[in-house]
Computed example of a mutant assay.
Amino acid sequence: MLTTRHGVRVLAAADLDDFLALADQDPVVNVFAIHRAQTTSLEPRWLGGEMWGRFDGGVLVAACHVAANLVPIQAGPEDAVAFAERALARRRTASTIVGPQDAVQPFWDAVSGTWGQPRDARWDQRHLVIEGPPQVDSDPGVRLTARTDLDLLYPACVAMYTEEVGVSPEAGGGTELYRTRVVQLISRGWSFAKFDRGELVFKAEVACATRDAAQIQGVWVPPHRRGEGLASAGMAAVVDLVQTRIAPSVSLYVNEWNEPARRAYERVGFRETARFATVMF
Rank of each mutant, 00 (worst) to 15 (best):
T40Y: 06
R54H: 08
P44I: 08
G227E: 00
Y253R: 04
N258S: 01
R179W: 02
R188D: 05
A146I: 10
T4E: 15
A13F: 09
D124E: 14
Q25H: 09
R179I: 04
A261I: 03
Q125E: 14
G7M: 05
V242T: 05
N255T: 13
P44T: 04
R197D: 11
A261C: 01
S251H: 00
M235H: 02
S41N: 13
R45K: 11
A146N: 06
T39A: 07
R92F: 00
R92P: 00
E164L: 08
A63S: 09
H6E: 14
N30E: 09
H6D: 15
N69L: 14
H127V: 13
A264F: 05
A89H: 07
E170M: 11
P223T: 11
W115T: 05
V98F: 09
N255Y: 10
T278V: 13
Q25G: 15
A146Y: 03
T40P: 04
R267N: 03
E176N: 10
Q105T: 08
G229I: 01
A236H: 01
R211F: 03
V183K: 13
A21N: 11
D15C: 06
S112H: 14
V59H: 13
V81W: 10
N258D: 03
E50H: 10
R275E: 05
T162F: 06
H35C: 11
T39Y: 02
D149F: 00
L230V: 04
W115A: 09
R245W: 01
D102S: 13
D124M: 13
